[in-house]
Every structure is written in structure tokens, then in C-alpha cells.
């Protein structure tokens, strides 16, 4: 019974093709439209909106990050230049003070030398004056002695 019913019996059978086919096709097409408006469109909208939101946020965050990095680099170069500037000023000041110190030292040295020289000259003149006086006195004394000796004779 089964074996004969399997294929192509007028009534029933596994391969009994009838109006079920086009009606089922229409049903599936209708289901496509229903599911599109009920499921695919709304869910798609919300999922794609979220994906857009997330990707926008990621892009924004990336932009901000790059901006921060740029600012950081900027700051670093500024810091670097400030540092070199400071170093320059410090070394300049050091040079200046060194120069001033040297100048002052030279001035003081010169002054000291001059006063030393003056003192030396003074001492020398006084020495020579004293010597002159001494030799004059010695001359006087010797003349006196000579005179006395001569007079006693």
C-alpha cells in the first residue's frame, strides 16, 4: 500500500503537488514583507544606529587622543626651549659675573700695585734722602774730625 502510494498516486502520496505550492509561495512572500517591517527594519535601524554611535565615539576619542599627543609634544618642545633658554641665561649671567669679577680683580690689583709702587718709591726716596743726610753728616763729621786734628797740631 505504502510503496504504491509513495509516487504519483492520484490521491495523496509524498510527491502530490497541488495548489499548496503557489499559496505557500505567496505566504512566504507576504511573510518577507511582514518580517521586513516588523523585524529587519526596526532591529537594523537600532543596531546600525548603535554601530554608528560607537564608531563615531571611537573616531572622536582617536581625534582627541591625537590632539592630546600633539599638545603633549608641543608642551615638551616648549619645555625644552624654556630649559635651553634658562641655561643660556644662567651661563650668560655666569659669564657676566665672571667678567665683572675679573674686572674688579684687575682694578683692585692695579690699585694695589700702584699704591705698592708709590709706597716703594716713597720708601726709596726717603731711603736715599736719609742716606744723603747720613753721608752729609758723615762728611760734616769727618770734616770736623779733620779740622780738630789739624787745629790740635
Amino acid at each position: 500500500m505504502l510503496a504504491f502510494n509513495f509516487f504519483g498516486a492520484t490521491e495523496g502520496g509524498l510527491f502530490d503537488i497541488n495548489a499548496t505550492l503557489p499559496l505557500m509561495a505567496i505566504q512566504v512572500v507576504a511573510l518577507t514583507y511582514i518580517l521586513n517591517s516588523l523585524f529587519f527594519k526596526p532591529v537594523g535601524n537600532i543596531v546600525e544606529k548603535r554601530e554608528k554611535f560607537v564608531s563615531n565615539n571611537i573616531i572622536e576619542a582617536k581625534n582627541k587622543l591625537s590632539e592630546v599627543k600633539k599638545l603633549e609634544a608641543d608642551l615638551l618642545t616648549q619645555l625644552q626651549s624654556a630649559r635651553t633658554e634658562a641655561q643660556r641665561i644662567v651661563s650668560e649671567a655666569e659669564n657676566e659675573s665672571d667678567k665683572l669679577y675679573k674686572e674688579a680683580l684687575e682694578l683692585a690689583n692695579n690699585e694695589a700695585n700702584a699704591s705698592k709702587e708709590k709706597a716703594r718709591l716713597e720708601i726709596e726716596s726717603q731711603t736715599s734722602a736719609a742716606r744723603d743726610q747720613l753721608s752729609k753728616q758723615a762728611d760734616d763729621l769727618s770734616e770736623l774730625i779733620v779740622n780738630r786734628l789739624i787745629l790740635e797740631k
Binding site: L14, F15, I17, T20, M24, A25, V28
Partner: peptide
């Protein structure tokens, strides 16, 4: 199962 009927599967395949 509706898919155990040849009409349904042929309908789907033709679509």
C-alpha cells in the same frame, strides 16, 4: 513540519 511537504520546499526553491 511544513518543510516535510514537497509543495513547501518547491515553493521556497522557486522563490
Amino acid at each position: 513540519a511544513p518543510t516535510a511537504d514537497i509543495n513547501t520546499t518547491i515553493a521556497l526553491a522557486l522563490l
